[in-house]
Simulated scan of single mutants.
Amino acid sequence: MTKADFVELVQKNGEFETKVAAEKAVKAFIDSVTEALVKKESVSLVGFGTFSTVEAAEKSGKVPGTDKTYTKAAHTAPKFKMGKTLKDAVAGN
């Protein structure tokens, strides 16, 4: 599903009068979650899931088929944990 398809779905389910209004709602949600994660806060939506951040340690590895190695620096990564309601809905299909 593309972002445009998702905006149409939000318009239908949210009963927005226009796609522009639905797109503003989607953008506001994305921007709000992003802002919270940048501040290293978690966002819990009961039944849906929790957006949070985790600290990923530095790691090194070998490029397959070559003798080259690489090192990936330590960083903060976003994480999503599904809630029970969402998990059950997805498993039911």
Rank of each mutant, 00 (worst) to 15 (best):
F16N: 04
Q11T: 11
K19T: 09
L45K: 08
E15H: 15
K84T: 14
F51K: 06
E15N: 15
K40Y: 02
K19D: 04
E35F: 04
M1D: 06
V20K: 15
T34D: 07
A57R: 14
A4K: 12
K27F: 07
F80G: 01
F80W: 13
V46D: 01
D5H: 07
S42Y: 08
A73C: 06
S32T: 15
N93F: 13
E58S: 12
V63S: 05
F51W: 14
P64W: 01
G92C: 04
K84P: 03
V63C: 02
K27Y: 09
A22I: 04
K24T: 15
A25Y: 03
K59V: 15
E15C: 08
P78Q: 05
V54Y: 05
K3N: 13
H75E: 11
K40M: 06
A91Q: 09
A4D: 05
A21P: 12
L45G: 04
A89N: 12
K72N: 04
L9N: 08
V7L: 02
G65H: 04
L9R: 03
M82V: 09
A36C: 02
A22C: 10
D88E: 14
V33A: 01
D88C: 10
T53L: 10
A4Q: 12
K72L: 14
L45N: 09
V46E: 08
Q11G: 07
G83F: 00
